[in-house]
Design a protein around this nucleic acid. Structure first.
Lengths: 204, 204
DNA sequence: AATTGTGAATTGATTCACAGCT
DNA sequence: AGCTGTGAATCAATTCACAATT
Protein backbone atom coordinates (compact mmCIF):
# COMPACT_ATOMS: atom_id res chain seq x y z
CA UNK A 1 0.00 0.00 0.00
CA UNK A 2 1.69 3.17 1.16
CA UNK A 3 5.17 1.67 1.15
CA UNK A 4 6.66 4.67 -0.66
CA UNK A 5 9.94 5.89 0.67
CA UNK A 6 9.58 8.63 3.23
CA UNK A 7 12.87 10.46 3.89
CA UNK A 8 14.39 9.86 7.27
CA UNK A 9 14.06 13.43 8.44
CA UNK A 10 10.43 13.51 7.37
CA UNK A 11 9.68 10.39 9.40
CA UNK A 12 11.15 12.08 12.41
CA UNK A 13 8.89 15.05 11.89
CA UNK A 14 5.86 12.78 11.56
CA UNK A 15 6.46 11.78 15.16
CA UNK A 16 6.49 15.44 16.13
CA UNK A 17 3.18 15.98 14.38
CA UNK A 18 1.76 12.96 16.12
CA UNK A 19 2.78 14.35 19.49
CA UNK A 20 1.16 17.67 18.80
CA UNK A 21 -2.00 15.97 17.53
CA UNK A 22 -2.24 13.92 20.70
CA UNK A 23 -2.29 17.10 22.76
CA UNK A 24 -5.01 18.52 20.53
CA UNK A 25 -7.03 15.34 21.01
CA UNK A 26 -6.71 15.58 24.76
CA UNK A 27 -8.14 19.08 24.49
CA UNK A 28 -10.96 17.86 22.24
CA UNK A 29 -10.00 20.13 19.37
CA UNK A 30 -11.58 18.61 16.25
CA UNK A 31 -9.63 20.23 13.42
CA UNK A 32 -6.32 22.00 12.95
CA UNK A 33 -4.75 23.99 10.11
CA UNK A 34 -1.33 23.21 8.73
CA UNK A 35 -0.21 26.58 10.07
CA UNK A 36 -1.22 25.80 13.65
CA UNK A 37 0.04 22.24 13.64
CA UNK A 38 3.30 23.26 12.04
CA UNK A 39 3.89 25.85 14.73
CA UNK A 40 3.33 23.31 17.47
CA UNK A 41 5.85 21.02 15.81
CA UNK A 42 8.40 23.74 15.14
CA UNK A 43 8.31 23.57 11.34
CA UNK A 44 6.94 25.65 8.46
CA UNK A 45 3.40 24.98 7.20
CA UNK A 46 4.58 24.04 3.71
CA UNK A 47 6.94 21.52 5.12
CA UNK A 48 4.20 19.87 7.11
CA UNK A 49 2.01 19.65 4.02
CA UNK A 50 4.86 18.21 1.97
CA UNK A 51 5.57 15.65 4.65
CA UNK A 52 1.95 14.50 4.71
CA UNK A 53 1.91 14.36 0.93
CA UNK A 54 4.40 11.50 1.07
CA UNK A 55 1.58 9.15 1.94
CA UNK A 56 -1.70 10.73 0.91
CA UNK A 57 -4.15 13.58 1.15
CA UNK A 58 -5.92 14.20 4.41
CA UNK A 59 -6.89 17.82 4.61
CA UNK A 60 -10.04 19.67 3.71
CA UNK A 61 -9.31 22.82 1.78
CA UNK A 62 -10.56 25.86 3.52
CA UNK A 63 -10.79 24.00 6.79
CA UNK A 64 -7.70 22.05 7.74
CA UNK A 65 -7.13 18.56 9.06
CA UNK A 66 -9.35 16.32 11.14
CA UNK A 67 -7.30 15.75 14.27
CA UNK A 68 -8.49 12.22 15.02
CA UNK A 69 -8.24 11.03 11.43
CA UNK A 70 -4.77 12.44 10.86
CA UNK A 71 -3.53 11.07 14.15
CA UNK A 72 -4.86 7.63 13.29
CA UNK A 73 -3.20 7.77 9.89
CA UNK A 74 0.12 8.74 11.44
CA UNK A 75 -0.13 5.86 13.89
CA UNK A 76 -0.63 3.57 10.92
CA UNK A 77 2.20 5.01 8.85
CA UNK A 78 4.63 5.08 11.75
CA UNK A 79 3.70 1.51 12.58
CA UNK A 80 3.10 2.38 16.21
CA UNK A 81 0.07 0.17 16.30
CA UNK A 82 2.00 -3.00 16.98
CA UNK A 83 4.47 -1.90 19.59
CA UNK A 84 7.94 -3.37 19.73
CA UNK A 85 9.38 -4.79 22.92
CA UNK A 86 12.79 -3.32 23.68
CA UNK A 87 15.67 -4.40 25.88
CA UNK A 88 18.11 -2.19 27.72
CA UNK A 89 21.76 -3.17 27.79
CA UNK A 90 23.96 -1.47 30.38
CA UNK A 91 22.44 -0.50 33.70
CA UNK A 92 24.84 2.09 35.07
CA UNK A 93 23.91 5.62 35.96
CA UNK A 94 22.27 6.50 32.71
CA UNK A 95 20.85 3.06 32.08
CA UNK A 96 19.06 2.80 35.39
CA UNK A 97 17.73 6.29 34.84
CA UNK A 98 16.30 5.26 31.51
CA UNK A 99 14.69 2.28 33.18
CA UNK A 100 12.76 4.50 35.53
CA UNK A 101 11.91 7.05 32.88
CA UNK A 102 8.19 7.02 32.17
CA UNK A 103 8.44 8.64 28.76
CA UNK A 104 8.92 5.43 26.83
CA UNK A 105 5.82 3.81 28.23
CA UNK A 106 3.79 6.95 27.59
CA UNK A 107 4.56 6.66 23.88
CA UNK A 108 3.83 2.96 23.84
CA UNK A 109 7.18 1.26 24.27
CA UNK A 110 7.74 -1.43 26.82
CA UNK A 111 11.21 -2.21 28.14
CA UNK A 112 10.99 -5.98 28.39
CA UNK A 113 14.18 -6.54 30.38
CA UNK A 114 17.49 -4.98 31.28
CA UNK A 115 20.92 -6.60 31.10
CA UNK A 116 24.24 -5.80 32.71
CA UNK A 117 27.55 -7.55 33.24
CA UNK A 118 27.20 -7.05 36.99
CA UNK A 119 23.54 -6.41 37.82
CA UNK A 120 23.19 -4.42 41.06
CA UNK A 121 19.77 -5.19 42.37
CA UNK A 122 18.83 -1.93 44.03
CA UNK A 123 15.36 -1.07 45.26
CA UNK A 124 12.36 -1.43 43.00
CA UNK A 125 13.39 -2.39 39.51
CA UNK A 126 10.43 -1.93 37.18
CA UNK A 127 11.56 -4.75 34.88
CA UNK A 128 13.66 -7.92 35.21
CA UNK A 129 17.36 -7.08 35.59
CA UNK A 130 19.46 -9.94 34.31
CA UNK A 131 23.11 -10.85 33.82
CA UNK A 132 24.41 -10.82 30.27
CA UNK A 133 24.49 -14.59 30.00
CA UNK A 134 20.69 -14.63 29.73
CA UNK A 135 20.69 -12.13 26.90
CA UNK A 136 20.91 -14.59 24.03
CA UNK A 137 18.12 -16.73 25.32
CA UNK A 138 15.86 -13.78 26.01
CA UNK A 139 16.40 -12.06 22.67
CA UNK A 140 15.72 -15.23 20.75
CA UNK A 141 12.70 -16.34 22.77
CA UNK A 142 11.03 -12.95 22.66
CA UNK A 143 12.20 -12.09 19.12
CA UNK A 144 13.63 -8.80 20.33
CA UNK A 145 14.40 -6.45 17.46
CA UNK A 146 15.31 -3.26 19.30
CA UNK A 147 17.83 -2.44 22.02
CA UNK A 148 18.79 0.60 24.03
CA UNK A 149 22.53 0.58 24.54
CA UNK A 150 23.86 2.41 27.58
CA UNK A 151 27.16 0.71 28.25
CA UNK A 152 30.52 2.50 28.55
CA UNK A 153 32.22 3.39 25.27
CA UNK A 154 34.84 0.70 25.75
CA UNK A 155 32.18 -2.01 25.77
CA UNK A 156 29.83 -0.56 23.16
CA UNK A 157 31.12 -2.12 19.96
CA UNK A 158 31.41 -5.55 21.52
CA UNK A 159 27.89 -5.38 22.91
CA UNK A 160 26.68 -4.24 19.51
CA UNK A 161 28.28 -7.17 17.76
CA UNK A 162 26.57 -9.50 20.20
CA UNK A 163 23.17 -7.88 19.72
CA UNK A 164 23.45 -7.79 15.94
CA UNK A 165 24.50 -11.42 15.94
CA UNK A 166 21.31 -12.27 17.79
CA UNK A 167 19.16 -10.51 15.23
CA UNK A 168 18.67 -7.07 16.76
CA UNK A 169 17.98 -4.60 13.94
CA UNK A 170 17.65 -1.29 15.72
CA UNK A 171 19.87 0.24 18.39
CA UNK A 172 19.33 3.42 20.32
CA UNK A 173 22.91 4.20 21.28
CA UNK A 174 23.78 6.34 24.28
CA UNK A 175 27.45 5.43 24.33
CA UNK A 176 29.93 7.99 22.99
CA UNK A 177 31.05 5.75 20.16
CA UNK A 178 29.95 5.51 16.55
CA UNK A 179 28.94 1.90 16.19
CA UNK A 180 29.99 -0.07 13.14
CA UNK A 181 27.05 -2.16 12.02
CA UNK A 182 26.18 -4.15 8.90
CA UNK A 183 23.61 -2.95 6.37
CA UNK A 184 20.08 -3.43 7.54
CA UNK A 185 20.84 -2.49 11.13
CA UNK A 186 19.75 1.01 12.11
CA UNK A 187 21.46 3.02 14.83
CA UNK A 188 20.15 6.23 16.34
CA UNK A 189 22.69 8.07 18.44
CA UNK A 190 21.84 10.16 21.46
CA UNK A 191 24.86 11.93 22.82
CA UNK A 192 24.08 14.24 25.67
CA UNK A 193 27.56 15.68 26.00
CA UNK A 194 27.68 16.55 22.32
CA UNK A 195 24.28 18.20 22.48
CA UNK A 196 25.57 20.43 25.25
CA UNK A 197 28.79 21.17 23.43
CA UNK A 198 26.81 22.01 20.32
CA UNK A 199 24.56 24.33 22.29
CA UNK A 200 27.49 26.14 23.82
CA UNK A 201 28.93 26.79 20.38
CA UNK A 202 25.87 28.69 19.26
CA UNK A 203 25.74 30.88 22.33
CA UNK A 204 27.43 34.10 21.34
CA UNK B 1 39.53 34.93 10.32
CA UNK B 2 37.94 31.75 11.62
CA UNK B 3 34.65 33.48 12.44
CA UNK B 4 33.12 32.24 9.22
CA UNK B 5 29.77 30.58 9.54
CA UNK B 6 30.00 26.86 10.06
CA UNK B 7 26.71 25.08 9.32
CA UNK B 8 24.95 23.61 12.30
CA UNK B 9 25.26 20.03 11.19
CA UNK B 10 28.95 20.50 10.51
CA UNK B 11 29.50 21.85 14.02
CA UNK B 12 27.82 18.76 15.36
CA UNK B 13 30.19 16.59 13.38
CA UNK B 14 33.19 18.54 14.63
CA UNK B 15 32.30 17.27 18.09
CA UNK B 16 32.25 13.74 16.74
CA UNK B 17 35.71 14.21 15.24
CA UNK B 18 36.94 15.62 18.51
CA UNK B 19 35.68 12.56 20.35
CA UNK B 20 37.42 10.21 17.98
CA UNK B 21 40.63 12.23 18.17
CA UNK B 22 40.60 12.04 21.94
CA UNK B 23 40.54 8.28 21.75
CA UNK B 24 43.45 8.32 19.31
CA UNK B 25 45.38 10.56 21.71
CA UNK B 26 44.77 8.20 24.58
CA UNK B 27 46.28 5.47 22.44
CA UNK B 28 49.23 7.68 21.52
CA UNK B 29 48.54 7.54 17.82
CA UNK B 30 50.31 10.54 16.29
CA UNK B 31 48.62 10.93 12.92
CA UNK B 32 45.39 9.89 11.25
CA UNK B 33 44.07 9.96 7.69
CA UNK B 34 40.74 11.49 6.77
CA UNK B 35 39.59 8.00 5.83
CA UNK B 36 40.32 6.54 9.25
CA UNK B 37 38.98 9.48 11.24
CA UNK B 38 35.87 9.65 9.10
CA UNK B 39 35.16 6.01 9.73
CA UNK B 40 35.45 6.47 13.48
CA UNK B 41 33.01 9.37 13.26
CA UNK B 42 30.59 7.62 10.95
CA UNK B 43 30.96 9.96 7.96
CA UNK B 44 32.58 9.92 4.52
CA UNK B 45 36.18 11.07 4.17
CA UNK B 46 35.26 13.92 1.81
CA UNK B 47 32.74 15.22 4.25
CA UNK B 48 35.29 15.31 7.01
CA UNK B 49 37.70 17.23 4.80
CA UNK B 50 34.99 19.68 3.76
CA UNK B 51 34.04 20.23 7.37
CA UNK B 52 37.61 21.00 8.37
CA UNK B 53 37.96 23.32 5.39
CA UNK B 54 35.40 25.64 7.01
CA UNK B 55 38.11 26.95 9.27
CA UNK B 56 41.48 26.15 7.75
CA UNK B 57 43.95 23.61 6.46
CA UNK B 58 45.50 21.19 8.86
CA UNK B 59 46.52 18.08 7.01
CA UNK B 60 49.73 17.01 5.38
CA UNK B 61 49.19 15.58 1.93
CA UNK B 62 50.34 12.03 1.66
CA UNK B 63 50.35 11.66 5.44
CA UNK B 64 47.14 12.80 7.12
CA UNK B 65 46.42 14.91 10.19
CA UNK B 66 48.44 15.46 13.33
CA UNK B 67 46.14 14.16 16.05
CA UNK B 68 47.23 16.55 18.80
CA UNK B 69 47.22 19.61 16.56
CA UNK B 70 43.84 18.92 15.03
CA UNK B 71 42.31 18.14 18.40
CA UNK B 72 43.65 21.41 19.81
CA UNK B 73 42.24 23.32 16.86
CA UNK B 74 38.82 21.73 17.31
CA UNK B 75 38.84 22.63 20.98
CA UNK B 76 39.52 26.21 19.94
CA UNK B 77 36.89 26.32 17.22
CA UNK B 78 34.24 24.66 19.37
CA UNK B 79 35.04 27.04 22.20
CA UNK B 80 35.37 24.20 24.65
CA UNK B 81 38.35 25.88 26.26
CA UNK B 82 36.28 28.06 28.56
CA UNK B 83 33.58 25.77 29.80
CA UNK B 84 30.07 27.00 30.48
CA UNK B 85 28.32 26.33 33.78
CA UNK B 86 24.90 24.76 33.27
CA UNK B 87 21.84 24.45 35.45
CA UNK B 88 19.32 21.64 35.47
CA UNK B 89 15.64 22.48 35.79
CA UNK B 90 13.30 19.66 36.73
CA UNK B 91 14.57 16.88 38.99
CA UNK B 92 12.14 14.05 38.39
CA UNK B 93 13.09 10.61 37.12
CA UNK B 94 15.00 11.76 34.11
CA UNK B 95 16.37 14.90 35.71
CA UNK B 96 17.88 13.14 38.70
CA UNK B 97 19.35 10.60 36.32
CA UNK B 98 21.02 13.33 34.33
CA UNK B 99 22.42 14.75 37.56
CA UNK B 100 24.21 11.53 38.28
CA UNK B 101 25.31 10.99 34.73
CA UNK B 102 29.08 11.32 34.51
CA UNK B 103 29.15 12.00 30.78
CA UNK B 104 28.74 15.74 31.04
CA UNK B 105 31.68 16.15 33.38
CA UNK B 106 33.81 13.92 31.21
CA UNK B 107 33.36 16.32 28.32
CA UNK B 108 34.01 19.33 30.49
CA UNK B 109 30.59 20.55 31.55
CA UNK B 110 29.73 21.28 35.14
CA UNK B 111 26.15 21.24 36.38
CA UNK B 112 26.26 24.16 38.78
CA UNK B 113 22.91 23.53 40.47
CA UNK B 114 19.56 21.82 40.01
CA UNK B 115 16.13 23.32 40.53
CA UNK B 116 12.70 21.83 41.11
CA UNK B 117 9.32 23.02 42.31
CA UNK B 118 9.38 20.40 45.05
CA UNK B 119 12.98 19.31 45.66
CA UNK B 120 13.13 15.82 47.17
CA UNK B 121 16.44 15.56 48.91
CA UNK B 122 17.31 11.93 48.46
CA UNK B 123 20.69 10.41 49.17
CA UNK B 124 23.84 11.97 47.82
CA UNK B 125 23.08 14.82 45.48
CA UNK B 126 26.22 15.72 43.58
CA UNK B 127 25.19 19.38 43.27
CA UNK B 128 22.99 21.82 45.22
CA UNK B 129 19.31 21.03 44.74
CA UNK B 130 17.23 24.14 45.20
CA UNK B 131 13.59 25.25 45.03
CA UNK B 132 12.58 27.33 42.02
CA UNK B 133 12.42 30.55 43.99
CA UNK B 134 16.21 30.65 44.12
CA UNK B 135 16.52 30.27 40.37
CA UNK B 136 16.46 33.94 39.45
CA UNK B 137 19.10 34.87 41.97
CA UNK B 138 21.37 32.00 40.99
CA UNK B 139 21.14 32.55 37.24
CA UNK B 140 21.90 36.23 37.59
CA UNK B 141 24.72 35.89 40.11
CA UNK B 142 26.47 33.14 38.17
CA UNK B 143 25.60 34.53 34.74
CA UNK B 144 24.18 31.19 33.67
CA UNK B 145 23.70 30.96 29.92
CA UNK B 146 22.74 27.32 29.49
CA UNK B 147 20.04 25.15 31.01
CA UNK B 148 19.01 21.52 30.79
CA UNK B 149 15.24 21.33 30.91
CA UNK B 150 13.72 18.09 32.21
CA UNK B 151 10.32 19.17 33.48
CA UNK B 152 6.99 17.63 32.38
CA UNK B 153 5.59 18.86 29.08
CA UNK B 154 2.87 20.81 30.83
CA UNK B 155 5.45 22.95 32.62
CA UNK B 156 8.02 23.23 29.86
CA UNK B 157 6.96 26.40 28.08
CA UNK B 158 6.44 28.28 31.31
CA UNK B 159 9.85 27.26 32.61
CA UNK B 160 11.36 28.26 29.29
CA UNK B 161 9.83 31.72 29.46
CA UNK B 162 11.27 32.14 32.92
CA UNK B 163 14.74 31.03 31.86
CA UNK B 164 14.77 33.16 28.74
CA UNK B 165 13.62 36.14 30.75
CA UNK B 166 16.62 35.68 33.00
CA UNK B 167 19.03 35.69 30.08
CA UNK B 168 19.48 31.99 29.37
CA UNK B 169 20.44 31.60 25.71
CA UNK B 170 20.75 27.87 25.26
CA UNK B 171 18.36 25.12 26.35
CA UNK B 172 18.83 21.39 26.11
CA UNK B 173 15.21 20.30 26.12
CA UNK B 174 14.16 16.83 27.24
CA UNK B 175 10.46 17.63 27.51
CA UNK B 176 8.16 16.37 24.73
CA UNK B 177 7.19 19.89 23.64
CA UNK B 178 8.60 22.15 20.95
CA UNK B 179 9.53 25.26 22.86
CA UNK B 180 8.67 28.66 21.45
CA UNK B 181 11.64 30.95 22.00
CA UNK B 182 12.70 34.35 20.70
CA UNK B 183 15.49 34.79 18.16
CA UNK B 184 18.90 34.44 19.69
CA UNK B 185 17.89 31.58 21.97
CA UNK B 186 19.00 28.15 20.83
CA UNK B 187 17.14 24.98 21.72
CA UNK B 188 18.41 21.46 21.17
CA UNK B 189 15.76 18.80 21.61
CA UNK B 190 16.41 15.34 22.91
CA UNK B 191 13.35 13.18 22.73
CA UNK B 192 13.95 9.60 23.70
CA UNK B 193 10.49 8.34 22.86
CA UNK B 194 10.69 9.81 19.37
CA UNK B 195 14.11 8.28 18.81
CA UNK B 196 12.67 4.88 19.65
CA UNK B 197 9.62 5.43 17.49
CA UNK B 198 11.88 6.51 14.64
CA UNK B 199 14.00 3.42 15.05
CA UNK B 200 11.00 1.14 15.01
CA UNK B 201 9.87 2.68 11.73
CA UNK B 202 13.05 1.74 9.96
CA UNK B 203 12.94 -1.84 11.11
CA UNK B 204 10.99 -2.69 8.02
C1' DA C 1 52.49 6.40 -3.26
C1' DA C 2 49.51 8.34 -0.40
C1' DT C 3 46.47 11.67 0.96
C1' DT C 4 44.82 16.36 1.32
C1' DG C 5 42.06 20.44 -0.45
C1' DT C 6 38.60 22.12 -3.32
C1' DG C 7 35.85 23.60 -7.57
C1' DA C 8 32.23 21.36 -10.01
C1' DA C 9 28.49 18.27 -10.13
C1' DT C 10 24.99 16.13 -7.89
C1' DT C 11 21.70 14.97 -4.78
C1' DG C 12 18.46 16.21 -1.35
C1' DA C 13 15.56 19.26 1.38
C1' DT C 14 12.99 23.38 1.84
C1' DT C 15 10.30 27.13 0.40
C1' DC C 16 7.61 29.67 -2.99
C1' DA C 17 3.65 30.60 -5.52
C1' DC C 18 -0.50 29.68 -6.93
C1' DA C 19 -4.12 26.62 -8.79
C1' DG C 20 -7.86 23.96 -6.92
C1' DC C 21 -11.38 22.72 -3.38
C1' DT C 22 -14.86 23.38 0.13
C1' DA D 1 -12.55 33.47 2.14
C1' DG D 2 -9.64 30.19 3.76
C1' DC D 3 -6.63 26.60 3.43
C1' DT D 4 -4.76 22.48 1.17
C1' DG D 5 -1.87 20.19 -2.44
C1' DT D 6 1.86 20.42 -5.43
C1' DG D 7 5.01 21.62 -9.51
C1' DA D 8 8.67 24.79 -9.95
C1' DA D 9 12.33 27.27 -7.95
C1' DT D 10 15.54 27.83 -4.58
C1' DC D 11 18.70 26.75 -1.19
C1' DA D 12 21.76 23.59 1.31
C1' DA D 13 24.43 19.56 1.86
C1' DT D 14 26.98 15.87 0.04
C1' DT D 15 29.85 13.56 -3.06
C1' DC D 16 32.85 13.35 -7.10
C1' DA D 17 36.99 13.91 -9.37
C1' DC D 18 41.32 15.37 -9.71
C1' DA D 19 45.15 18.68 -9.21
C1' DA D 20 48.43 19.77 -5.62
C1' DT D 21 51.59 18.43 -2.15
C1' DT D 22 54.66 15.79 0.78
Amino acid sequence: MSKLVIPRKAVYRLSLYQRALQRLRENHIPTVSSAALAKAAGVKPTQLRKDLAYFGQFGTRGLGYDVDALSAKLTEVLGTTKLQPVILVGVGNLGSALLHYQGFAREGFEIAAAFDVAPQKRKTMPVPLLPMKYLEDFVKKRSIKMAILAVPGTAAQEATNLLVGLGVQGILNFSPIILQVPDGVVVNNVDLAIELENLSYFIR
